[in-house]
Simulated assay, not measured.
Amino acid sequence: MRAHLYLRASTKDQDAHRAEAQLDTFAHDKGLTVVDKYLENISGTHLERPELMRLLDAAESGDVLLVEAVDRLSRLSLADWAKLKRMIEDKGLRLVVVDLPTSHESMADGLTGSILGIINGMLVDLMATMARQDQEKRVERIKQGLERKRAADPEWKPAGRTRNKDTHAAVIKHLSNGTLSMEEVAKVAGCGVATVYRIKREMGEATNA
């Protein structure tokens, strides 16, 4: 059985390769043939992820989509998670999660595989919901922490990174030309693909304002 490995980390400071050896070992132990690996640094709250979309385009019915944990695949809203699930189902892929044993058994054919597939689907939905809630709680904690600091010191400002104006301008220029793909714009501008998607979204919001 063919397997496509998907590895994701949220930021450039995190290592998307971290779980690669674990997935390779799992695939070998389960007799899966790894046909490709897809790695990217982008938030799991975004449905449109270049490498994930490339995986879904390349995969064939009956192939395995192998991930380390559900939160590596999704921290999506309920609506976006439903869309992603439908995309996976429409391609006829088997979602296998290393830290979710029921997904391993769902690779089996026949009645046992079908029953475990239903159970596994329910568990994956639950874990996807928990991953999204964990993300929302983390964001809320950060927001509360910033509010407390501002209340204690009205002059305080976060020391976050300032936007690189040259990079921002270059991305807008190449997006406006419409001749390059998102990945090519990122390469030319010297930034991540996630940054290009963010700026494109901001451009759309400004246009619609």
Results as ranks from 00 to 15, higher is better:
R198M: 12
T162A: 14
R49Y: 09
I88D: 02
V34E: 05
T179A: 14
T179D: 14
I42P: 03
A131L: 04
H17F: 12
E48W: 06
A152T: 09
N120I: 02
D36Y: 01
A82F: 07
M53C: 10
L146H: 10
Q14L: 04
T112F: 03
P158L: 00
A58K: 15
G190F: 05
E105R: 13
T167S: 05
D36W: 02
S43L: 03
V124Q: 00
A69R: 15
S74G: 05
D29A: 11
M53S: 15
Y197T: 08
K37H: 04
M122A: 14
A206S: 06
L56T: 04
E136Q: 13
T33P: 02
R54Q: 08
I142V: 12
V96Q: 03
L73H: 02
A128T: 11
G113A: 06
G145W: 00
I119T: 09
L95Y: 02
A3Q: 10
S176P: 10
I42N: 01
L111I: 11
R132N: 07
Q14R: 01
V67P: 07
V124R: 01
L95R: 08
L100T: 13
A131R: 05
V67T: 07
L7V: 06
A189G: 10
S114I: 07
T33W: 01
E155D: 14
M122S: 09
A58D: 15
L66C: 08
E60Y: 00
H174E: 10
F26K: 04
V35L: 04
S176H: 13
E183T: 15
V70P: 05
G192C: 02
A79N: 12
A59N: 12
E155R: 14
D15E: 08
Q14I: 07
P154V: 10
I172A: 05
H104Y: 03
A159K: 14
W156P: 10
A82M: 13
K37T: 12
G190K: 11
T33A: 07
Q14H: 05
S106K: 08
A159C: 10
I118N: 01
R148M: 01
H104E: 07
S10P: 08
G145Y: 01
V171M: 01
D71E: 13
M53P: 07
